[in-house]
Design a binder for these strands. Structure first.
Lengths: 350, 350
DNA sequence: GTGAAAGCGCTAACAA
DNA sequence: TTGTTAGCGCTTTCAC
């Protein structure tokens, strides 16, 4: 048998209403009575039931989060940030993954919404985000994060993707690289296209054509394979620019397999900034997304809506930073020593 | 106004009970009526309210998960596995992080339990896991994962830690390493101590003393600093053995800063197995934990309990694998070529 | 300051 | 097969 407010009331010799008041600090309760109630609750091991509380018109204290992939550290770091924010305000977080599938996205969304959460944070699995009809119809406040469809007009927070692309391109062109290869996950995503635009802008400003872009997919294995294929095709850029973490990983792996030294033979700019990027040799120059801030901003917006803010929906774009480390250098630069040039570039290892 | 079963019933011209039956497939409902109900629900945009369903004695369809750190990929991979299992059975997952603090652990546990979940999966923040009194008292089925206190007698799933240590030690001693340094997070955790025991066993069997162990903490920064200090103290092992991912990262970073080449100057065995470990040069030899299987096993146990299994509590230990890659080699072995000895870190043959 | 009682959305028992 | 009704645990008037 589960212990309810009723048992506590009985033991303390008060009414259930009083017990409720004690636990919610609403109406003022006599100190003595309150003490008795708390004691009774302790003895009985009573814990309030949130489902019941919520049912009775109490503003819900849950927020739901839906991301495309729980194995992707960018999304889980986002969740970590969200979880901290949300807890701080006494909310609980319920999470789900759409596994990159629109169908699953819709399903999960339904399940999530069935908890009548106070709000919803969602990283859509694609630019359609058709399911947005759902939260909208249910009038649940929601904010879209990271993958913001171009035509979306609600609250949204993302990174300034074009600027991120610009940052990387400027760094590389500044070093003297003219022939770079951009490794995108998929051009089907608005944020990725924006990053490409930023890169093209920089090249355009220099009177150069936009660099080629290849799509390497959304997993490590696929990315490695695609970059390998590119290398096998005789591609010889002086620098690689990754637009996602998996692209970064794929570039690194393929380059190693082909015995290309970094930055001797080729420079590499990675995307995102994880500990391992500082641990490896050479440490990776990369574009850092302010994940924690993204989570905080998303929560701030959602919180405002939950509290009934009448502000018009707004879109914020956070700045990325270029973490300059040792994987980028001028093409054919000082790091290219005889020992490295030693011939085997062109044959895959093993 | 939120749309309830009542509005649907009214529009469809049936009773609420019938609507409930339609959505739960319990009693058989006339096909025509069912169609009308569904149509009404669609028109109204009705979604069932799980909180209410749960309140009314319906077996809860949520499971709660509590981990020490949402920024640690081991735990988030575990959650990813759990989420997939749980969803498959129509359960929702609510997550929380204890941030490694017993106080927060207790708090979160209370919040989680307040949803009256069908079950609970917890990775304790320490070996005390004093809070276990909570789920036990509330009679909520729960299973402890990964950090299983030595004296814990309930359902638990972890890795065979001693064996993991043995695997790594055998690999290293097999290569001819006698002087190794073990980098543990903290000896305060049972699982870490077990890994050390496994290592000591192998050395003991060879008539060698157990290798020294240093505690490098639970973060990347701390680990890097501790290993750096060790190196600064003149330590010269021929191999490093990491017992956690952060220890791995710390070893790699410090070694790079000190210009020690891998595996030329020193071999490294990492812990856990992430994509980046294959991407870096040299690819890292490491101990892989079967994270996904851990999640699945945990869920299987929990599910059995939820369904009322009377089995005695059981503890399962999953096997780890050694992923043999290029960061380990015999000490002063064939890989130590003149070119490498020159001091530039991390540019092995590949 | 406290208690009594209504009712949140739903399901389950029972009646029709 | 369908409708009616009594609660699940809680919050919230509204008397007192």
């Amino acid at each position: 048998m589960t212990i309810s407010i009723k048992e506590v009331a009985a033991l303390a010799g008060v009414s259930t209403g009083t017990v409720s008041n004690v636990f919610n600090g609403k109406a003022s309760v006599d100190r003595k009575l309150a003490g008795r109630v708390r004691e009774a609750a302790r003895v009985l091991g009573y814990e309030p039931n949130r489902a019941a509380a919520q049912l009775r018109g109490r503003p819900a204290r849950v927020v739901a989060a839906l991301v495309p992939d729980l194995n992707n550290p960018f999304f889980t770091n986002l969740l970590a940030s969200l979880e901290a924010c949300v807890r701080e305000r006494g909310f609980d977080l319920i999470v789900a993954s759409s596994n990159g599938s629109p169908r699953e996205e819709r399903e999960r969304l339904g399940a999530l919404l069935a908890w009548q959460p106070a709000g919803l944070i969602v990283v859509p699995c694609d630019d359609e985000f058709e399911s947005r009809a759902l939260p909208a119809r249910r009038r649940v406040p929601f904010v879209v994060v990271d993958r913001v469809p171009g035509n979306f007009r609600g609250d949204a927070v993302s990174v300034d993707n074009a600027d991120a692309g610009r940052l990387a391109a400027e760094h590389l062109t500044g070093l003297g690289h003219g022939e770079i290869l951009v490794a995108a996950s998929t051009l089907g995503l608005q944020n990725i296209r924006e990053r490409c635009d930023g890169i093209a802008q920089v090249f355009g400003g220099l009177g150069l054509p936009a660099p080629p872009v290849i799509e390497v997919g959304l997993s490590f294995e696929q990315a490695t394979e695609r970059i390998g294929t590119f290398l096998a095709g005789g591609g010889h850029p002086t620098a690689f620019l990754a637009l996602t973490t998996f692209a970064t990983l794929g570039i690194l792996t393929a380059l190693r397999e082909w015995n290309r030294s970094i930055p001797g033979d080729v420079s590499v700019v990675g995307f995102d900034d994880y500990s391992w990027m500082q641990a490896v040799s050479p440490p990776l120059t990369s574009i850092r997304q302010p994940v924690e801030a993204i989570g905080r901003e998303a929560w701030e917006r959602l919180r405002a809506r939950i509290e009934g803010s009448g502000q018009p929906p707004s879109r914020i774009r956070l700045q990325c930073d270029l973490m300059e480390r040792a994987s980028t250098a001028p093409p054919n630069g000082p790091r290219r020593m005889p020992a490295d040039a030693g011939g085997t570039a062109g044959e895959p290892a093993g």
